[in-house]
Design a protein around this nucleic acid. Structure first.
Length: 421
DNA sequence: TCTGGGGTCCTAGGACCC
DNA sequence: TCTGGGGTCCTAGGACCC
């Protein structure tokens, strides 16, 4: 039975979020920077036209931005996450079958609407989202996820399509696939593009025509699936219920290099705190915490990179346990005399907290731990992340990441509401 | 001076077992 | 001591995604 999927996403999503709350930005090029104000991760079409590339370090384009009047923002994930939720609320008024794929992309299952004028429905979807959230979008339609993604890409690249491309019919695919570079196909990255070029496969149409066995030989099962998907044979299911996460990490570059162990312990404690919040929010626990730290890969400082894994006596999501493990790991791999620019903690093999086995002798009263952590989380939700950090008196945080150009959290912080008048 | 932060999946190869 | 053909499980690393 054939499906019809839509992929809808926000155009230059982070930039569009900034524009929603500051109309002055509508006529100007806008970029949003990564964490620590490191590099450009979102650009409006005007910014792209100035030659600003995805992932370009900000210090290399700072002059250009000043000269051309580019509006530059630190990333404001609280705002973007809230806008994302609003967009998905709009999608669900069209169909309950929504897979949230990323912060700005969702797949919608429109199979129940076959026979309806799907492009007209896509136009309605776009204009409703625009009206209710202010975010401009593009919609791709296709019988498989890969084709819906490709259609969305075509809609973005061809303004005359007014933000909608429909690849549900074979004739449309025959017309468009030869015009799309194979590197623009979902799942085909630079390594695969290189391998395919050597056998003369350069367009999406070429890849669709490749015998699946050959694709498997060259690119593994992922390549083989992609060939089938491009032919309209669905291999990737819609995931309406998000699968349980397998891992969880908190890693950050520092605003200023760390050279003292005490500062490193502060930093990994802060990451462990954040990690605890993430685990508890998902009802998960971990049995071990990996810690890593490294020096810069971009300068001539002496290099050092290390990681270690600390086992917990029992699976936990208690911030105090995570901080203890993170500090122990950091001490284990710490070396004096280096300038560390980044560190992080990684937790794999997560289990559901409710399934955590209970040891014979509990190191800590579990009921009390759950109550205390619940209280910490609710206070931090109310007053902002970091309002309470267990055992954190006197944190100086010279190492904390920079966000020098962050816009107000318009939608989620009362004191940062936009002012009218 | 200044270069992000998360994730997932797959494969190859080693350790171990019968 | 060596010889063999499988299994399974685990880990590291590659590739890709947003």
């Amino acid at each position: 039975m054939s499906r019809t999927l839509a992929l809808i996403d926000g155009n230059s999503f982070y930039c569009s979020c900034e524009r929603v709350f500051d109309p002055r930005l509508h006529t100007r090029p806008v970029i949003v920077l990564s964490n620590n104000d490191g590099c450009a991760v979102a650009r409006t079409s005007e910014a792209k036209a100035l030659g600003i590339k995805m992932g370009e370090p900000f210090f290399k384009i700072a002059d250009l931005c000043k000269r051309e009047g580019v509006m530059v923002y630190s990333s404001n994930y609280t705002l973007y996450g809230d806008m994302s939720a609003r967009m998905n609320d709009v999608y669900r008024t069209f169909t309950p079958d929504v897979e949230i794929y990323s912060i700005d992309e969702s797949f919608l299952d429109l199979s129940g609407f076959t026979g309806r004028d799907l492009p007209a429905m896509a136009r309605d979807l776009r204009s409703t989202v625009r009206q209710w959230t202010g975010i401009p979008t593009c919609v791709g339609l296709g019988p498989t996820k890969t084709l819906a993604k490709l259609a969305n890409h075509i809609a973005k690249k061809n303004p005359e399509l007014n933000g909608i491309c429909d690849l549900t019919m074979p004739a449309a695919r025959e017309a468009w696939l030869p015009r799309v570079a194979v590197s623009d196909v979902w799942g085909i990255g630079s390594a695969s593009t290189y391998k395919l070029a050597r056998i003369g496969v350069t367009t999406a149409a070429d890849l669709a025509a490749l015998p699946p066995r050959e694709a498997r030989q060259l690119l593994s099962v992922i390549g083989e699936r992609t060939v089938f998907e491009l032919r309209g044979v669905s291999c990737l299911a819609l995931e309406l219920v998000p699968p349980q996460r397998k891992g969880c990490a908190v890693t950050r570059s520092f605003g200023a290099p760390i050279t003292a162990l005490e500062e490193m312990l502060e930093a990994v404690s802060a990451y462990a705190t954040r990690a605890g919040e993430k685990l508890r929010r998902h009802g998960l626990a971990t049995g071990h915490v990996s810690v890593f730290m490294h020096t810069s890969a971009f300068n001539t400082d002496p290099r050092y990179s290390a990681s270690t894994t600390v086992e917990l006596p029992e699976a936990s999501n208690d911030t105090r346990d995570l901080i203890g493990a993170a500090k122990r790991g950091a001490r284990r791999i710490w070396k004096d005399g280096y300038r560390f620019v980044k560190a992080g903690i990684i937790m794999d093999d997560l289990i559901r907290a409710a399934d955590a086995p209970r040891p014979l002798f509990e190191a800590r009263d579990r009921e009390q731990s759950v109550k205390l952590m619940g209280a910490v989380d609710s206070i931090n939700r109310r007053f902002g992340r970091g309002a309470i950090v267990p055992g954190s008196a006197g944190i100086k945080q010279r190492w904390a990441a920079r966000f020098e150009r962050r816009s107000p959290r318009y939608t989620t912080r009362l004191e940062e509401l936009p002012l009218v008048g």
